[in-house]
């Protein structure tokens, strides 16, 4: 980090450089799979890019495309996206007090929050507390302005690759979607309730899909998630912390 005082421009550049490293590379490659998924869905490349630009949260983007392709109603899509992305609410609640300063105009957080997703959130949470408060948003935006266009580039590459490589490779690209998220979840198994949620969800999801194709994801989430919460002791922890 430079010893000179950090201007907004330099903080932005600092974030931009950090984006051009491992987390940025992993994120961009993960969107290759999404582009390949778009190629075999009812969505056009433009719509796929629009999804990356406006959704900016890959799991819900995949869920939306999968549900739409399976013929789910818009209500089901809205509920599934809401349940998938509700995690953005607590993430934002935690990060915003770190990012904003007293001089930040009231509307600015409402704009920059669009780029808040897991990779940028984890990065900002780690780096921003060490930066002077007024330039933290600039750092976050610098980082995001690598990831966001990068993810669109990844989407486009995946789309064109899936159409030009041999079928076996294009199948592999589509397969990146579930594999990537399976491993992302497997990397954080410290909290018992969440492990239960993953296991029960993985068992219930395919089974319910056979009986309730339209509603299976919602029912899986609510039933397996609530069951995991109870089994894993989520209720008893409440009592402990309350006493």
């Amino acid at each position: 980090m430079p010893a000179r005082p950090l201007t907004h421009t330099r903080a932005f550049a600092h974030g931009f450089r950090d984006g051009l490293s491992v987390p940025g590379f992993v994120l961009i490659s993960s969107f290759l799979g999404f582009g390949a998924l778009i190629r075999q869905s009812e969505f056009t490349l433009f719509q796929g890019l629009l999804s990356t630009a406006t959704g900016w949260a890959l799991p819900a983007q995949i869920a939306m495309v999968e549900l739409y392709t399976a013929g789910a109603s818009f209500l089901v899509i809205a509920l599934a996206v809401a349940l998938t992305n509700v995690r953005l609410l607590p993430m934002t609640v935690v990060l915003m007090p770190i990012l904003r300063s007293r001089s930040t105009p009231r509307w600015v957080p409402y704009v920059i929050v669009h780029w808040l997703a897991i990779t940028g959130w984890a990065q900002a949470l780690r780096v921003c507390p060490e930066l002077p408060r007024p330039v933290r948003i600039s750092y976050f935006m610098g980082f995001s302005m690598v990831l966001w266009p990068g993810a669109m580039l990844g989407t486009m590459l995946g789309y064109y690759l899936a159409g030009s490589v041999p079928l076996a490779i294009s199948l592999g690209l589509v397969f990146l979607n579930p594999i990537y998220f399976m491993l992302v979840f497997a990397s954080d198994l410290r909290i018992k309730t969440r492990v239960w949620a993953l296991c029960l969800g993985a068992l219930l999801g395919p089974v319910l899909h056979l009986y309730l194709p339209d509603m299976s994801l919602l029912v899986t989430g609510l039933v397996a998630g609530s069951l995991a919460f109870v089994i894993g002791g989520g209720l008893s922890r409440k009592k402990q912390s309350a006493s």
Binding site: A80, A197, G205, S216, L217, G221, G225, S226
Partner: peptide, 21 residues
């Protein structure tokens, strides 16, 4: 606890989607 429950629901939903895919 409400946020932990919400996280569990989201995890289960995504695990269900991944397994189904």
């Amino acid at each position: 606890p409400i946020f932990e429950w919400v996280t569990c629901v989201a995890y289960a939903l995504l695990a269900g989607l991944i397994a189904r895919m």
